[in-house]
Simulated assay, not measured.
Amino acid sequence: MEVQISDDEKLFLIHGVESDLRNDGRSCEDFRPMILERGVLSGTNGSCRVQLGQTTDVLAGIKLELESFDTIAYPKPRQPIYFHVDFTANASTQFAGKGGDQYGEEVAAAFHAAYSRSLDFIPNLSKTLVAEGYRWKINMDVSILQWAGSFPDAISLAVIGALSDLEIPEVEVAPDDGGKVSVVLKRPRHGGNMRDEEVPVEMWKLDVTKCPLLLTVSKIGTANLVDCCPEEESCIRAQLLVGISQNPEEEKYDVTCVKQLGGGLLEMESVLEMIELAQKATKGIYEALAKRLKTEERRKPGHSFLL
């Protein structure tokens, strides 16, 4: 979403953020109101919709896939979460046709980098390896429905929401002919004449408490701020995308990735200040996210905001 403002308006905005007062009354560390809804798509294994400031709108959906892989070529466990980011033409006119393909690949690559150590900060993610040469592959598809600033931040919230909504089936592994194994869905035994197909499959969920948040930190004038609105984005000197993962045991926040967005020059001192701001802002986001995931009312199966 592109906004054209005059030079005088830009000057007024820059002086405001340098005094820690933004046009909408927020400080440089504050985010716009957020809306998070899980279970919004009945055709996925997990889904989440996030609205940031009621103008940036992001939808994430997960499809599970049981895949086989060559254990010789890949002897070590691989990160099983794969990202695909799509910018719809409705998000901005610049994404009409294939205008958003390259941008989507860049954002997906940033999330791959941020989640490259997902086996470390999602404690039970190793359970996706169900047998030697077989694993659950988590395909995360993200669509940007509307873009009005800070879309990576909204994507990271939607990703965590979708992962927390994801239900992964328990499986039973049995030896098969030719040294192979057979993988079947695990169903609880209730006795009687009930067929296995009529018994619900046992499910388990991921522990997402340490999943990384990706925050966009912008430099306007001499000030650093988070969650820029479209008017503020027209005044940006430089931007950093910072991935932060919380570590509750040690009460600290680890940096998982740092990527500069767009142009502009940054000194190392400025980079460190922007990372420090991201770590400080992340604390409040994690607290609000944990509260939301705990208290959110579950949707009825098959009910979606798209219907």
Rank of each mutant, 00 (worst) to 15 (best):
T56Q: 00
D196M: 15
H15V: 11
V130L: 05
Q102K: 15
M194H: 09
D86S: 06
E167Y: 08
G284T: 02
E105Y: 05
S126I: 10
K210V: 05
E231N: 11
R49E: 01
E172Q: 10
L185P: 05
C48V: 09
P169M: 07
K10H: 11
S234G: 06
M268P: 08
V217L: 00
E9F: 01
M34S: 05
K259I: 07
K180M: 08
V40Y: 15
Q146V: 15
A290Q: 14
E250Q: 14
K186V: 05
Y134K: 13
E287I: 08
Q146C: 12
R292K: 15
F121E: 08
A110K: 13
W136R: 03
R49K: 12
Q102C: 06
C228M: 03
S126Q: 10
V3H: 07
I144V: 03
S304H: 13
S304F: 08
M203T: 05
E18T: 05
I81F: 04
L307S: 13
G39V: 09
I62H: 07
H112K: 07
L266R: 09
S218R: 01
F12D: 13
G43S: 14
D207R: 02
E2I: 15
E249W: 14
D57I: 03
I168L: 11
W136D: 02
G284I: 02
I35V: 11
R135H: 08
E276Q: 14
V217N: 01
I160T: 11
I144N: 01
P200C: 02
A96P: 15
L206A: 01
N90K: 08
K210P: 08
I285K: 05
N90H: 04
M194Y: 13
R22D: 04
L240V: 06
V17A: 09
C211E: 10
L66C: 09
V142G: 04
N124H: 01
E296C: 05
E296K: 06
V183P: 01
S234P: 09
F95Y: 07
S234T: 11
H112M: 14
S118T: 08
L240P: 04
L13A: 05
S47Y: 04
K63G: 13
E296V: 06
E106G: 09
L240N: 04
M1D: 02
R117Y: 01
V201E: 10
Q51F: 10
F151C: 11
I160S: 13
V183Q: 11
F12G: 05
D8Y: 15
E296T: 02
V208F: 00
V271W: 01
V50L: 01
P77M: 08
Y74Q: 12
G16F: 00
G178W: 06
F121N: 14
G191P: 00
K300D: 12
R189T: 10
T222R: 09
C211F: 05
N139R: 11
K300R: 14
C28D: 10
R78E: 13
Q54E: 01
L265E: 10
V159D: 08
I236A: 12
L66G: 02
T209K: 13
M268V: 10
G104W: 04
